[in-house]
Design a protein around this nucleic acid. Structure first.
Lengths: 188, 188, 188, 188
DNA sequence: TGTTAAGCGAGACGGTACGTCGCGTCTTAAT
DNA sequence: ATTAAGACGCGACGTACCGTCTCGCTTAACA
């Protein structure tokens, strides 16, 4: 019996949010600034997103490129494609900042943690698929603990890229792939 | 020729800063709050530390936990000790928050980046030692890339503990150790 | 289209401002103090009045005392009434301070100058009337320069009261009236 | 048995004070600014002058030109010389500001009031002399109340110059002199 | 096809924190 | 003992955002 929330307004906010992050980094990301740039009223932002962080989360959900998961015929090829896609995304400094900002919030707020987890899971679908294909092909042992494997696969890149804030060169990429594939395919 | 900056004041500030971080997390860390708790005037804080960040850095420098590196006779044992020590520290929610907060700043601010890197290096001494002992014992190939190895060793725990914000159970710990040790000791 | 500025808040500010001036003089007048006493947020004060001075002006506008101008039948009687009324007002130390404070600002700030002039004009209406009645009665020459006359009438009291910060006794009052009336009524 | 206060330092302060008033007006006059410009330590300023206002007072005492009191042979001539000299001094906007600033302080602080009164008395010596010469010449009645006369003489100029912040033109000057001389020389 | 509840822009409001300036007091070392 | 230098506690300044609130105006869904 009433008026629904305007999708136009929502889009304008998200667009402005992305623009701000691109221009000024996460630190410049402010409810006031989003309102200013988007022309949307501050109240409306709060109506759509409970907090600035929620908007931030929504904004990057639209940014994060789809992670490709083509079937290359081998575990190594599939992992290279999936991880490479994630690495590409990680090369934008702003994205790294946003990722950590969200992470920070997720450590405090449970609801936020859930959303963050979901977003991550989505981003890791390709990795999961790669491992499952590996199992199907017989490259990987069928009794492998997939969660563990995922941690093992992502870990080194996370350390290099986020903690050390260093890019991963092609050589390093291949070297890491070597170790990962070997570890996943070695029978006990 | 003038009055020297009071070490007492400095100590009070840093103590208060650490107390705040412990109690309310890094988000509660505020020049005003430090002034309130320490009884030191806000202006004095600015006189000692040009900005709140500098004080934060100073406060954190004193927090860095010691990591033990006993020689247990085996690579696995040494890694278990070193990583276990890090995991223990990671169990305090405040510490996780501080870690991410600093990480966030490190992505933007060079000074923070340097401090963060230094703190991490210090925390990883035990890991380095464990791997080097492994090489000495002949468990690990002498031509191993230690930086790569470190990324592999830390990675999975970082993912579990920080990204997924899940504790690492003993079972998981041992399972991850399995994979890591196997990866480190497998000859090409 | 937006929420109107709260008249209640405005009133509370002005009331508090006047209270402060009364209690502590103009020197105690501070945005912070107004905020404290009125319970209105500091930011709101800035929203209503761009600066503390504007608030001060607004507060003072309401303070200006009424000056009586009864027709006593003679120039001397009229002047006695009008000046007496001003002298009465001048007996409050706070008012003297406010007067000088405003005067000080008026020398620097045009807005203050205008407000000060307006307040003075209003205060001098009774004097003007007295002189004009004198002209009508034939006591004062019709070609008199009223501005000059006003300066003569006010001057001595201003010197005594403000510069020398001495009260004007009844004897002195009458003596000065003697001189003034003589000066005004003497034909060339 | 100790070192006397350095007259050099005192001079530097006063010089700096005058410079500041000239450059930035009384509002820019600050202990810190005087210290900065003069190179004198803040502490030293407080040792020489209890407060900034005291320094201000000292500074203008050096600025105010000597008021000339030549014997022109007539009351009118003497008054013209004495008042003209004061009017000349009053033409510097900064001096008017300083005068009012000091006046403001004198309304609050008794010690200050005394100093202010003394400074004024000194400035009015020429006026007193003029009137006394008038008495000696027989132009003015010998039983005149000199204090009252002084108030009467100064008053109009004070109103015009300070309150109305208007210059006194030569025409007005002469017109005012007319009235004053007439009033002083008229026998009851 | 009105009615009407919700959405919306605008911006006021009470807050908290910021970083800066000036104050008056103090503590040094140097003269 | 005086000085230059500057630390110290303090209080005020004006600004930026925050999250909540009050306004009128607009608009879509229901009666």
């Amino acid at each position: 019996m009433a008026r629904p929330k305007s999708a136009a307004a929502r889009d304008k906010m998200i667009e402005a949010a992305q623009e701000i992050i691109r221009d000024q980094g996460v630190d410049g990301f402010t409810i006031d600034e989003v309102a200013r740039r988007s022309g949307v009223a501050r109240t409306t932002i709060y109506r759509h997103f409970g907090s600035g962080d929620d908007l931030l989360l929504a904004a990057i959900d639209h940014i994060v490129a789809e992670v490709e998961a083509p079937d290359t015929g081998s575990l190594r090829g599939d992992l290279r494609a999936a991880i490479g896609s994630l690495l590409d995304a990680s090369r934008t400094p702003e994205l790294r900042q946003v990722f950590v900002s969200i992470l920070r919030r997720a450590l405090v707020d449970d609801e936020f943690a859930t959303a963050f987890r979901a977003a991550n899971d989505q981003r890791h679908v390709a990795l999961r698929t790669a491992i499952q294909r590996g199992i199907a092909r017989g490259e990987v042992a069928p009794d492998i603990n997939i969660e563990l494997a995922l941690q093992f696969v992502q870990g080194p890149f996370l350390v290099k890229r986020l903690i050390e804030n260093d890019d991963v060169t092609d050589r390093e990429f291949e070297a890491l792939l070597d170790i990962i594939v070997r570890a996943l395919t070695t029978r006990t």
